[in-house]
Design a protein around this nucleic acid. Structure first.
Lengths: 317, 317
DNA sequence: TTCAAGACTGCAAACAGTTGCACTAAACCT
DNA sequence: AGGTTTAGTGCAACTGTTTGCAGTCTTGAA
């Protein structure tokens, strides 16, 4: 039924080990035999069986990618870039979704462990302890979280937040709200400390909030009442929800209120007004993560963010 | 280093075959031995090696999912649902992106063939001939394309398009534009034939267009000049671009022009005005596709679409 | 002409499981 | 009591590849 290395060996009059070598160590076999084997293999439609190969070599040529929510617009560009980087080196990519549950995360890493050469974890929610234990079973690189021992790729949100607040200050805003994210979030803390350091602006923190459109919508009243003229939101979804909420209160953006988001997701670009935002290098992060994994280096890299100025910010009235 | 079935066998005083059976055919082993083996396995941290298992059984417990563009907002909900359905039955999911290239598609199917028990193909671009040839190597189910011999899940866009045009007709629009998609697209053809059948509306087809925001933006002038009061767009991205283009021409939606999209992607819901659109059952399709694959049934199913009325449609002036 | 070095290639033992078959002992039946 | 079924377990072959080791055959050098 399925054509194996033995069929090719028989049909080309050599031993299986020679066939094996023409695929996995071509330089060890005579040019003439090599081409003969290759053509026979082609004719027969032979493809090496990776499962069998993995059994002896211990390398599967598969990678795992675990994210909290595939349908969250933040992740697809990262997944896409990771996939493309993997394919470039002839790796396949398992993609998994934890539905935001730490338990699912740990279970997935376990389940992947024998099937992949490594896994990339995006903003993992599991405890340090759990992760350190799992790191013994399978190498991984972590995106957007510090974890000692593991390779890490960070996106410098702090820098982006600073740029955003400076942008608002530059436009003349003196009192700015930070519509923050969920309580324990590493990102939210980063944003806050960075935003607070910008001189000449008074920062009022409003939160914690759910990191969603609804979270932003719900924060609109408090933003209006806080007496600010500009806002930095935890992310684009929150910013979009906030803009809608402000609209319902009779405030328009950017005329009555400037709003800056973070992430630069597609819906923000398509929004009206088009969202001024901090672009996160998600694609670069995805690519880098798989490169680190494949080369098995353990480094921690920080990626630059930048400010994308669009239509949701203007000088205050 | 890594703990195998043999280690467990030794530690629990039984033969490897018994250990094997406690995992793959528990009913064949005595309850007492089973629990003993299980606890020993637990202690040792044993996990069956899927590659080895795949070698003998021929089943990998992996599935492949191939889409044109992971970052296209249409796909993530489908991927997420497929993943969840797969996990429920203890399957893992490879996700791959063809970047819209048929060649990549065929190569990916090839590459997957030995590693998965089946693959789900979303709106494949390859030729029928190529696909039929590949179907011999690996079972697959196709989403949104008719292909004889293969299991197929279709989303009934035709029905949705009819609903959309009827909705416009009901609001009083008598002349409606169809801003169509790319030339060879199956979906585009479906939409057109269905839309043409609605009585009482004169349909003017504008296209072909790129299936993107820019495609819609570029079509704005022709829409304005066509003398219609309502539009059905090939998809939400096109609709959003079109609305922006119309805005630049001084026409506002829905006051001057009603616009209906298709797909119900997130950016459409977040858009202002919120987009009236035809909701595609992408999640259901993803789920169903993997269920079909796992049960190895070859059926063709058609999934219902429905109209979601939001703010981009109103009665004509 | 002889010998050592190289270049190929074959042999066979892994890798981590599954499974048909044979065997034992207990349970069941008449 | 004797024969037959049944439940549980062991044995060993098999899945498709890789790889260390050992041969064979050229080549080039002394």
């Amino acid at each position: 039924m399925t054509v194996t290395i033995r069929d090719v060996a028989r049909a080309s009059g050599v031993h299986v080990s020679t066939v094996s070598r023409t695929f996995s160590a071509p330089h060890m076999v005579n040019a003439a035999t090599r081409t003969r084997v290759l053509t026979v293999a082609e004719e027969l439609g032979y493809r090496p069986n990776r499962a069998a190969r993995a059994l002896t070599t211990g390398r599967t040529h598969n990678l795992g990618l675990i994210v909290a929510d595939i349908a969250n617009p933040f992740f697809p560009p990262l997944i896409k870039a990771a996939h493309s980087a993997a394919r470039q080196r002839d790796y396949h990519l398992f993609v998994a979704d934890t539905d935001e549950e730490p338990a699912a995360e740990e279970e997935l890493i376990q389940a992947f462990s024998k099937q992949v050469d490594g896994v990339v974890l995006c903003s993992p929610r599991s405890s340090n302890k759990a992760l350190e234990r799992l790191a013994e079973r399978v190498p991984f690189v972590v995106i957007n979280r510090r974890l000692r021992g593991a390779a890490t790729v960070l996106m410098d949100v702090g820098h982006g937040a600073r740029l955003a607040v400076e942008h608002l200050a530059g436009l003349g805003h003196e009192r700015v709200a930070l519509v923050s994210g969920p309580a324990g979030s590493w990102t939210s803390a980063e944003i806050r400390t960075a935003a607070e350091q910008v001189p000449g602006v008074e920062l009022v923190v409003i939160g914690p909030n759910a990191p969603t459109e609804r979270g932003g919508f719900a924060a609109a009243v408090r933003v209006r009442d806080s007496g600010v003229t500009g806002v930095l939101a935890y992310n684009d979804l929150v910013a979009i929800g906030l803009i809608e909420g402000l609209g319902d209160l009779g405030l328009s953006v950017p005329e009555d209120m400037s709003v800056v988001g973070i992430d630069d997701i597609v819906p923000g670009r398509l929004n009206r007004p088009k969202l001024t935002t901090v672009a996160m290098p998600t694609a670069a992060a995805g690519r880098l993560a798989v490169d680190l994994l494949i080369q098995e280096v353990s480094a921690t890299t920080s990626l630059e963010t930048r400010l994308v100025i669009r239509d949701s910010t203007a000088a205050p009235r």
